[in-house]
Every structure is written in C-alpha cells, then in structure tokens.
C-alpha cells in the first residue's frame, strides 16, 4: 500500500492521522480510497469537475504530479504521496477576522 501524507488542515478529517496507507493504481484512486475511509477528504482536494484544486499540490515521492501524469500518475506499493495545500500564516492573531 502507498502512504499518503495528510497535511495538518485536513487531519481533522482523518482523525488526526498524519499518514494514511491505502491501495490504488494511481493518484486519483488513492484520493478516493482515503475518502472512502475518511469521508470529506476528496471534497477538500478536488473541484466539481474532479480536477485538483489550484491551491493544492500533490507529490508522488519528490515530484509534483503536474510534472508527471497529473491525477493519472501511477503509484506503486512503496510510493509516498504528499498533499501540500497553500498556507498563508505567518502567525497572525487576526487575519481571518479582519473583514468581519
């Protein structure tokens, strides 16, 4: 099974787990497999058309899937998949409420 590294903002969906081992032939399969175990994950990563959201990057081992075959990038048993979302902090105590 491949290992999916879950970024902090999504860990509340995985019960706090930072790594999830799932089986699948490619990146898209793995995302669905994680979502099956922890519902809601796919929605955080994919847009309505099933494409990766443009503020999220996925890496198979060290390389971003945009430079490979996108969501169709094949994954093997020992591959490590990293999900890397845009993060804005800083360490503000107020960013999100400045528009309230």
């Amino acid at each position: 099974m491949a290992t999916v590294y879950v970024p902090t903002p999504i860990r509340r969906l995985t019960g706090g787990q930072a790594k999830v081992d799932v089986a699948g032939a490619n990146v898209a399969d793995l995302i669905q497999a994680v979502d099956a175990a922890y519902p809601g994950v796919a929605e955080r990563l994919l847009d309505d058309d099933g494409n990766l959201k443009r503020f999220i990057n996925v890496f198979v081992n060290d390389d971003e899937i945009r430079t490979l075959d996108g969501l169709a990038t094949p994954v093997g048993e020992k591959d490590k998949i990293s999900i890397v979302p845009a993060m804005a902090g800083g360490s503000s105590n107020r960013t999100e409420n400045r528009r309230e």
């Binding site: 903002p9 990057n57 979302p85 845009a86 993060m87 503000s92 960013t95 999100e96």
Partner: peptide, 15 residues
C-alpha cells in the same frame, strides 16, 4: 505552485 488562492474561509488561519 498555487495558481489560485483558496476561497476565503476554506483554509483556517493560525488565529
């Protein structure tokens, strides 16, 4: 890396 920003509120802040 990040062609578009996340919609406001989708990514929680450190605050």
């Amino acid at each position: 890396l990040y062609p578009d920003p996340p919609p406001p509120g989708e990514v929680p802040s450190c605050a």
